[in-house]
């Protein structure tokens, strides 16, 4: 029982599993493709993941509250289109970007209001707004792209600052803010509490509605920021950005050990999940150059990471 007790009470088995898996990927890379691990290569490949990582921050917290936000791609599209259209009408791209983020945040508030006031399950709300937001972006822009942003704005997405891509600094800044909000204020424990038992929270005077509203608004803000970085990186604002990104984000978050049933998971696991997904994806396409293989490996990896976690912690958790 002694060892079993330790095994069971240790809370970071999933993080260990992820670290081992990341190590396996790196070991394979070291053996077969040493160039893959070089710093300049890793730095440039990392530009593919920062927007997804930014979206993972609010998604982690929302999933911890047993919610979900499928509309992130739609909010990105709306932000990009706002940014593009305002820029086209002569506004400075920086002002336009701020307005775009504002619009996306408002979309997030809208999600939050429907979830908290009308109490419809977030899956349904965001399933509907996912289509509604993207449709609005298509309708407003008539699906036309806006391109040729000034180079200074492009720096936001393509530039390198102190050895790291600019979007990486955006992510790390946001991660720091989120982590301190979760770790140092009551908001963190509120999130977990809401995810475990919302009814009990209401009796315990936890401001459930304000927590949820804040989180969905944060998700909107993060989507806006991700969209701005994307537009700056690819120099194009169009209504199709972030199509299908919600599944990638959710995959990364649940790979990171965040329970879809709420109340469990942490930011560290999420970061490792994102890293594992990113490195695997890049390594597979680096090594084999067969895109369809990527899908198979990613799908199996997702299941495998959780399966390993289950085996390592027997009888610790049940299915729901």
């Amino acid at each position: 029982m002694g060892e079993g007790g330790i095994v069971r009470s240790f809370r970071y088995w999933h993080e260990i599993v992820l670290l081992v898996l990341i190590g396996v990927v790196f070991a394979f890379a070291q053996m077969f493709e040493p160039r893959f691990l070089q710093l300049d290569v890793q730095r440039e490949l990392s530009t593919h993941i920062w927007e997804i990582a930014i979206l993972c921050l609010p998604m982690t917290l929302i999933i911890i509250t047993a919610g979900i936000d499928l509309s992130v791609g739609g909010m990105m599209a709306l932000c990009a289109v706002t940014l593009g259209m305002l820029f086209q009408r002569g506004l400075s791209p920086w002002v336009a970007a701020t307005m775009g983020i504002g619009v996306a945040t408002l979309c997030g508030v809208l999600n939050g209001l429907v979830v908290t006031r009308i109490r419809v399950h977030p899956l349904i709300v965001t399933l509907a707004t996912m289509a509604a937001f993207r449709g609005a972006a298509e309708g407003l822009s008539l699906a036309r792209p806006v391109s040729s942003f000034p180079e200074a704005f492009g720096w936001l997405g393509q530039g390198v600052w102190w050895g790291l891509p600019v979007p990486a600094w955006c992510f790390m800044g946001l991660l720091l803010l989120t982590a301190s909000a979760v770790g140092l204020s009551r908001w963190g424990s509120y999130c977990y509490a809401v995810g475990m038992n919302p009814e009990a929270c209401r009796f315990a005077a936890v401001p459930v509605n304000r927590v949820l509203l804040g989180l969905y608004a944060f998700s909107g803000f993060a989507s806006g920021l991700a969209a701005v970085l994307f537009v700056a990186r690819r120099n194009t604002a169009k209504a199709d950005i972030g199509m299908g990104i919600e599944l990638l984000v959710i995959t990364a978050v649940v790979t990171g050990g965040v329970s879809i049933f709420g109340g469990r998971g942490n930011l560290l696991g999420m970061v490792l999940g994102v890293l594992l997904i990113h490195e695997t994806r890049e390594f597979v396409s680096w090594r084999w150059s067969r895109d369809e293989l990527n899908f198979v490996v990613m799908g199996l990896l997702l299941i495998l990471s959780v399966l390993l976690h289950r085996w390592l912690t027997p009888a610790n958790r049940n299915t729901s």
Binding site: L247, I250, T251, V254, S259, I260, F261, D291, E292, L293, N294, F295, V296, V297, M298, G299, L300, L301, L302, I303, V306, L307, R310, R317, N318, T319, S320
Partner: peptide, 22 residues
């Protein structure tokens, strides 16, 4: 296997997509 269904089926969704191509 006690893996949450959303993870299993999300994984299969991705894996089958690649499989079709194969």
């Amino acid at each position: 296997g006690k893996v949450p269904s959303i993870i299993v089926t999300l994984g299969m969704l991705t894996a089958f997509k690649g499989g079709t191509e194969f």
